[in-house]
Design a protein around this nucleic acid. Structure first.
Lengths: 166, 166
DNA sequence: ACTTTTGAGGAACGGTCGTTCTTGACTGAT
DNA sequence: ATCAGTCAAGAACGACCGTTCCTCAAAAGT
């Protein structure tokens, strides 16, 4: 019973991922969300509870849609160059911002981020047969490269030097 | 003529570096700045113009006090392990947050960050005799490791594997 | 057809944001 | 001693923040 929703919840969450991944959490206002997501304020709060609630859902969606597939693709990688290229090519905007900006202030965000990164680490370690510490370093390196916007194919330069080390 | 300042501008800027380096730009309010810096609102605006003005000054101070010395120390490094340890040990909180959070929204911040990172890259490249692309990758890797909080000495693990490559 | 439930629509809330204004105290120069 | 100029102090500003309330339209169950 009752009226049906005029919006697709999945599309809305995906759009929120893009918004939060582009600007910081505090840089995206409810008004912007209402406009860009095409969802009324009321429905937004009814559906997601709060701005932070929507952010957490968007973050989990980002991890499920963008980070977990990356970890699965990494399982098929056989050398560091491929692994690094996979990580730097992935869309990790929201993860990056969450780690740098929200994680220090929101321990639930910090836990999600840490778990996701640990999963990527493990996937790399298993695929390449290296220690998790070195795998974590590769993940961190990829994040740093992504943070810098990968100027002049820096990622490939590092990957080339890492290759013989597997 | 006129009354003398009751605060030390250098101390205030340093304190602002700590504040902005710990929380995000939008996470630090003027009220917090007034309380923690011990400077009255009025004096703050008289001296620094605006919140963004203070942020830019704090960022430049951070780059001058914390990043440039790092680049100079890097000039004396002879291997990647030392270089990486120097970078991960440095206080780069504000630089990291500026790169992730403010640079996409403030091109003046983006320019400062890019210039500072390029200087670090060049210092590493000169010291180790490697390409600037690889040096940029090392800097990026160090930033990523710093972003993750360097769990379990990840930095040293990467450095150990990078050493034979110089 | 009528009731009931739910979403859409938009105004409005208190609070906090960055910024400015007004007032008065202090200090160096005349 | 007086004046001029700077700083301190705090109230106050309009704008915007995240959130809630109230009302009406739409659709499912009886």
């Amino acid at each position: 019973m009752g009226r049906r929703r005029a919006f697709d919840e999945d599309e809305v969450v995906r759009a929120a991922v893009e918004l939060f991944g582009g600007r910081a959490y505090d840089g995206v206002s409810i008004d912007e969300l209402v406009v860009h997501l095409g969802v009324h304020r009321n429905s937004l709060y009814k559906t997601f509870g709060s701005k932070r609630g929507l952010y957490l859902i968007a973050l989990r969606r980002h991890l499920a849609d963008d980070v977990r597939p990356l970890a699965e693709a990494l399982a098929a990688a056989t050398d560091a160059a491929t692994a690094l290229r996979l990580v730097t090519a992935a869309d990790l905007g929201l993860l990056l911002l969450a780690a740098a900006e929200r994680a220090p202030a929101d321990e639930e965000v910090a836990a999600e981020v840490a778990a996701a990164l640990a999963a990527v680490d493990q996937a790399i370690a298993d695929a390449l047969g290296i220690s998790t510490a070195l795998a974590a370093a590769l993940t961190a390196a990829a994040l740093g490269i992504r943070l810098r916007g990968d100027p002049d194919g820096v990622g490939t330069a590092l990957a080339r030097h890492l290759d013989p080390l597997d």
